[in-house]
Protein backbone atom coordinates (compact mmCIF):
# COMPACT_ATOMS: atom_id res chain seq x y z
CA UNK A 1 0.00 0.00 0.00
CA UNK A 2 2.80 2.36 1.03
CA UNK A 3 4.95 1.39 -1.91
CA UNK A 4 2.00 1.88 -4.27
CA UNK A 5 1.46 5.35 -2.89
CA UNK A 6 5.14 6.16 -3.25
CA UNK A 7 5.05 4.93 -6.84
CA UNK A 8 2.06 7.10 -7.74
CA UNK A 9 3.66 10.13 -6.04
CA UNK A 10 6.91 9.63 -7.97
CA UNK A 11 4.95 9.12 -11.18
CA UNK A 12 3.19 12.44 -10.57
CA UNK A 13 6.59 14.16 -10.27
CA UNK A 14 7.76 12.43 -13.48
CA UNK A 15 4.71 13.60 -15.42
CA UNK A 16 4.89 17.07 -13.94
CA UNK A 17 8.56 17.37 -14.95
CA UNK A 18 7.62 16.30 -18.48
CA UNK A 19 4.70 18.79 -18.63
CA UNK A 20 6.93 21.58 -17.39
CA UNK A 21 9.61 20.71 -19.98
CA UNK A 22 7.22 20.69 -22.91
CA UNK A 23 6.07 24.19 -21.96
CA UNK A 24 9.61 25.45 -22.52
CA UNK A 25 9.99 27.22 -25.88
CA UNK A 26 13.70 26.45 -26.04
CA UNK A 27 12.78 22.80 -26.45
CA UNK A 28 10.73 23.42 -29.59
CA UNK A 29 13.38 25.69 -31.09
CA UNK A 30 16.01 23.02 -30.61
CA UNK A 31 13.84 20.23 -32.04
CA UNK A 32 12.88 22.40 -35.03
CA UNK A 33 16.51 23.26 -35.65
CA UNK A 34 17.53 19.59 -35.47
CA UNK A 35 14.80 18.63 -37.96
CA UNK A 36 15.87 21.41 -40.35
CA UNK A 37 19.46 20.19 -40.11
CA UNK A 38 18.41 16.59 -40.84
CA UNK A 39 16.42 17.77 -43.87
CA UNK A 40 19.35 19.85 -45.07
CA UNK A 41 21.54 16.73 -44.98
CA UNK A 42 19.76 15.76 -48.19
CA UNK A 43 21.43 18.77 -49.80
CA UNK A 44 24.85 18.09 -48.20
CA UNK A 45 24.77 14.67 -49.84
CA UNK A 46 24.47 16.28 -53.26
CA UNK A 47 27.81 18.06 -52.78
CA UNK A 48 29.71 14.83 -52.19
CA UNK A 49 29.73 11.67 -54.27
CA UNK A 50 28.86 8.08 -53.50
CA UNK A 51 27.88 8.59 -49.88
CA UNK A 52 24.61 10.54 -49.87
CA UNK A 53 23.00 8.02 -47.53
CA UNK A 54 26.02 7.90 -45.20
CA UNK A 55 26.04 11.70 -45.00
CA UNK A 56 22.32 11.80 -44.24
CA UNK A 57 22.69 9.21 -41.46
CA UNK A 58 25.77 10.84 -39.93
CA UNK A 59 24.25 14.34 -40.01
CA UNK A 60 20.95 12.96 -38.68
CA UNK A 61 22.48 10.97 -35.81
CA UNK A 62 24.85 13.80 -34.88
CA UNK A 63 21.93 16.27 -34.89
CA UNK A 64 19.91 14.02 -32.60
CA UNK A 65 22.93 13.64 -30.31
CA UNK A 66 24.03 17.31 -30.23
CA UNK A 67 20.54 18.77 -29.84
CA UNK A 68 19.66 16.08 -27.32
CA UNK A 69 22.76 17.10 -25.37
CA UNK A 70 21.72 20.77 -25.46
CA UNK A 71 18.17 19.93 -24.40
CA UNK A 72 19.43 17.69 -21.57
CA UNK A 73 21.77 20.40 -20.28
CA UNK A 74 19.32 23.32 -20.67
CA UNK A 75 16.51 21.48 -18.93
CA UNK A 76 18.67 19.46 -16.53
CA UNK A 77 20.45 22.38 -14.88
CA UNK A 78 17.15 23.87 -13.74
CA UNK A 79 15.64 20.66 -12.40
CA UNK A 80 16.31 21.40 -8.73
CA UNK A 81 17.30 25.06 -8.86
CA UNK A 82 14.06 26.22 -10.52
CA UNK A 83 11.91 24.46 -7.91
CA UNK A 84 13.88 26.14 -5.14
CA UNK A 85 13.88 29.51 -6.87
CA UNK A 86 10.11 29.44 -7.42
CA UNK A 87 9.59 28.15 -3.89
CA UNK A 88 7.43 25.33 -5.28
CA UNK A 89 9.82 22.81 -3.75
CA UNK A 90 8.82 23.82 -0.22
CA UNK A 91 5.15 23.27 -0.94
CA UNK A 92 5.97 19.90 -2.43
CA UNK A 93 8.18 18.74 0.41
CA UNK A 94 5.64 19.83 3.02
CA UNK A 95 3.56 16.91 1.76
CA UNK A 96 4.47 13.33 2.70
CA UNK A 97 7.00 13.03 -0.11
CA UNK A 98 10.59 11.97 0.41
CA UNK A 99 13.43 13.97 -1.04
CA UNK A 100 14.65 10.85 -2.82
CA UNK A 101 11.28 10.58 -4.61
CA UNK A 102 11.67 14.15 -5.79
CA UNK A 103 15.15 13.51 -7.23
CA UNK A 104 14.20 10.18 -8.84
CA UNK A 105 11.00 11.70 -10.25
CA UNK A 106 12.92 14.63 -11.74
CA UNK A 107 15.51 12.28 -13.25
CA UNK A 108 12.91 9.99 -14.83
CA UNK A 109 10.79 12.96 -15.96
CA UNK A 110 13.66 14.52 -17.89
CA UNK A 111 14.58 11.14 -19.35
CA UNK A 112 10.99 10.72 -20.51
CA UNK A 113 11.15 14.18 -22.13
CA UNK A 114 14.37 13.23 -23.89
CA UNK A 115 12.83 9.96 -25.04
CA UNK A 116 9.91 11.83 -26.65
CA UNK A 117 12.24 14.43 -28.23
CA UNK A 118 14.58 11.77 -29.58
CA UNK A 119 11.61 9.85 -30.97
CA UNK A 120 10.43 13.02 -32.78
CA UNK A 121 13.88 13.72 -34.24
CA UNK A 122 14.25 10.04 -35.21
CA UNK A 123 10.97 10.18 -37.13
CA UNK A 124 12.44 13.17 -39.01
CA UNK A 125 15.55 11.14 -39.82
CA UNK A 126 13.57 8.10 -41.03
CA UNK A 127 11.35 10.32 -43.20
CA UNK A 128 14.45 11.95 -44.74
CA UNK A 129 15.98 8.50 -45.30
CA UNK A 130 12.88 7.26 -47.06
CA UNK A 131 12.74 10.43 -49.17
CA UNK A 132 16.35 9.85 -50.27
CA UNK A 133 16.26 6.08 -50.86
CA UNK A 134 12.54 5.56 -51.66
CA UNK A 135 12.72 2.35 -49.60
CA UNK A 136 14.17 0.94 -46.39
CA UNK A 137 16.85 -1.73 -46.40
CA UNK A 138 17.21 -4.52 -43.80
CA UNK A 139 20.48 -3.05 -42.47
CA UNK A 140 18.70 0.26 -41.73
CA UNK A 141 17.35 -1.37 -38.57
CA UNK A 142 20.79 -0.95 -36.96
CA UNK A 143 20.06 2.78 -36.88
CA UNK A 144 17.84 2.04 -33.89
CA UNK A 145 20.90 0.80 -32.00
CA UNK A 146 22.72 4.09 -32.65
CA UNK A 147 19.62 6.04 -31.56
CA UNK A 148 19.28 3.87 -28.44
CA UNK A 149 22.94 4.50 -27.56
CA UNK A 150 22.37 8.26 -28.00
CA UNK A 151 19.48 7.94 -25.52
CA UNK A 152 21.76 6.13 -23.07
CA UNK A 153 24.30 8.93 -23.45
CA UNK A 154 21.60 11.53 -22.83
CA UNK A 155 20.45 9.69 -19.71
CA UNK A 156 24.02 9.91 -18.39
CA UNK A 157 24.07 13.65 -19.17
CA UNK A 158 20.77 13.99 -17.28
CA UNK A 159 22.24 12.12 -14.32
CA UNK A 160 25.30 14.38 -14.31
CA UNK A 161 23.17 17.52 -14.60
CA UNK A 162 20.96 16.44 -11.75
CA UNK A 163 23.95 15.55 -9.59
CA UNK A 164 25.67 18.91 -10.18
CA UNK A 165 22.46 20.92 -9.85
CA UNK A 166 22.06 19.56 -6.30
CA UNK A 167 24.97 21.67 -5.07
CA UNK A 168 25.84 24.20 -7.80
CA UNK A 169 24.18 27.10 -9.59
CA UNK A 170 22.64 26.42 -13.04
CA UNK A 171 25.55 28.05 -14.89
CA UNK A 172 28.14 26.08 -12.96
CA UNK A 173 26.11 22.86 -13.39
CA UNK A 174 26.05 23.43 -17.16
CA UNK A 175 29.81 24.01 -17.22
CA UNK A 176 30.55 20.96 -15.03
CA UNK A 177 28.28 18.73 -17.14
CA UNK A 178 29.78 19.90 -20.41
CA UNK A 179 33.32 19.42 -19.13
CA UNK A 180 32.41 15.92 -17.90
CA UNK A 181 30.97 15.20 -21.36
CA UNK A 182 34.13 16.38 -23.12
CA UNK A 183 36.49 14.57 -20.74
CA UNK A 184 34.27 11.48 -20.94
CA UNK A 185 34.91 11.42 -24.68
CA UNK A 186 38.67 11.55 -24.05
CA UNK A 187 38.70 8.80 -21.43
CA UNK A 188 40.28 6.23 -23.77
CA UNK A 189 43.17 8.67 -24.40
CA UNK A 190 43.45 9.19 -20.67
CA UNK A 191 44.04 5.50 -20.20
CA UNK A 192 46.60 5.35 -23.02
CA UNK A 193 48.39 8.31 -21.42
CA UNK A 194 48.51 6.38 -18.15
CA UNK A 195 49.89 3.29 -19.82
CA UNK A 196 52.60 5.28 -21.58
CA UNK A 197 53.81 7.16 -18.51
CA UNK A 198 56.61 5.76 -16.35
CA UNK A 199 55.22 7.43 -13.23
CA UNK A 200 53.29 4.91 -11.09
CA UNK A 201 51.18 7.58 -9.37
CA UNK A 202 50.17 9.14 -12.68
CA UNK A 203 49.38 5.73 -14.07
CA UNK A 204 47.17 4.90 -11.08
CA UNK A 205 45.48 8.29 -11.24
CA UNK A 206 44.71 8.05 -14.95
CA UNK A 207 43.38 4.50 -14.54
CA UNK A 208 41.18 5.63 -11.63
CA UNK A 209 39.89 8.57 -13.69
CA UNK A 210 39.22 6.22 -16.61
CA UNK A 211 36.83 4.16 -14.50
CA UNK A 212 35.44 7.11 -12.53
CA UNK A 213 34.45 9.30 -15.48
CA UNK A 214 31.54 8.33 -17.72
CA UNK A 215 32.95 6.78 -20.89
CA UNK A 216 30.88 8.44 -23.61
CA UNK A 217 32.98 7.04 -26.45
CA UNK A 218 31.54 3.56 -25.74
CA UNK A 219 28.21 4.75 -27.11
CA UNK A 220 29.61 6.09 -30.35
CA UNK A 221 28.52 3.66 -33.09
CA UNK A 222 26.96 6.19 -35.49
CA UNK A 223 29.73 5.98 -38.12
CA UNK A 224 29.70 2.17 -37.88
CA UNK A 225 25.95 1.75 -38.41
CA UNK A 226 25.85 4.43 -41.11
CA UNK A 227 27.60 1.84 -43.33
CA UNK A 228 24.95 -0.76 -42.53
CA UNK A 229 27.14 -2.66 -40.08
CA UNK A 230 25.45 -4.51 -37.19
CA UNK A 231 26.28 -3.95 -33.52
CA UNK A 232 26.84 -7.04 -31.36
CA UNK A 233 24.11 -7.90 -28.86
CA UNK A 234 26.68 -8.15 -26.06
CA UNK A 235 27.75 -4.52 -26.71
CA UNK A 236 24.12 -3.41 -26.45
CA UNK A 237 23.67 -5.32 -23.19
CA UNK A 238 26.92 -4.10 -21.66
CA UNK A 239 26.26 -0.47 -22.61
CA UNK A 240 22.77 -0.73 -21.12
CA UNK A 241 24.21 -2.20 -17.93
CA UNK A 242 26.90 0.50 -17.83
CA UNK A 243 24.37 3.35 -18.24
CA UNK A 244 22.03 1.82 -15.64
CA UNK A 245 24.80 1.39 -13.06
CA UNK A 246 26.37 4.79 -13.68
CA UNK A 247 23.00 6.53 -13.49
CA UNK A 248 22.14 4.64 -10.29
CA UNK A 249 25.38 5.89 -8.74
CA UNK A 250 24.72 9.47 -9.89
CA UNK A 251 21.11 9.50 -8.70
CA UNK A 252 22.11 7.91 -5.37
CA UNK A 253 24.80 10.58 -4.90
CA UNK A 254 22.31 13.32 -5.87
CA UNK A 255 19.77 11.96 -3.36
CA UNK A 256 22.45 11.85 -0.67
CA UNK A 257 23.49 15.47 -1.28
CA UNK A 258 19.92 16.72 -1.63
CA UNK A 259 18.81 14.92 1.54
CA UNK A 260 21.46 16.77 3.51
CA UNK A 261 20.76 20.12 1.90
CA UNK A 262 19.54 22.84 4.24
CA UNK A 263 16.45 24.16 2.51
CA UNK A 264 15.56 26.85 5.05
Amino acid sequence: MLSQMMFSQTLAIVLNTFREAVRDRVLYNLIAFALILIASALLFGEISIGIQKTILLNVGLSSISIFGLLIAIFLGIGLVYKEMDKRSLYALLSKPIRRSQFIIGKFLGLNFTLLVNTALMSVGLWVALFYLMRRFEPQDQYLWVAIYFILLQLSLITGLCLFFSCFATPVLSAIFTFVAYVVGNFSADLRVFGELTQNGTLKGLSTALYYLLPNFSDFNVSAWVSHGNPVEGSVILLNTLYALCYNSVLVAAAVWIFSRKDLK
Binding site: I51, I55, L61, S62, Y181, V182, N185, D189, S222
Partner: peptide, 17 residues
Amino acid sequence: RTLSLGHNGLLADIYWT
Protein backbone atom coordinates in the same frame (compact mmCIF):
# COMPACT_ATOMS: atom_id res chain seq x y z
CA ARG B 1 39.46 12.04 -34.20
CA THR B 2 39.72 12.76 -30.48
CA LEU B 3 38.34 16.28 -30.86
CA SER B 4 35.36 15.02 -32.84
CA LEU B 5 33.70 14.11 -29.50
CA GLY B 6 32.09 11.03 -30.97
CA HIS B 7 30.96 12.75 -34.18
CA ASN B 8 33.81 11.24 -36.20
CA GLY B 9 31.40 9.90 -38.85
CA LEU B 10 30.08 13.38 -39.55
CA LEU B 11 33.57 14.85 -39.61
CA ALA B 12 34.75 12.09 -41.98
CA ASP B 13 31.93 13.01 -44.37
CA ILE B 14 33.03 16.65 -44.24
CA TYR B 15 36.66 15.70 -44.98
CA TRP B 16 35.58 13.30 -47.75
CA THR B 17 33.55 16.11 -49.34
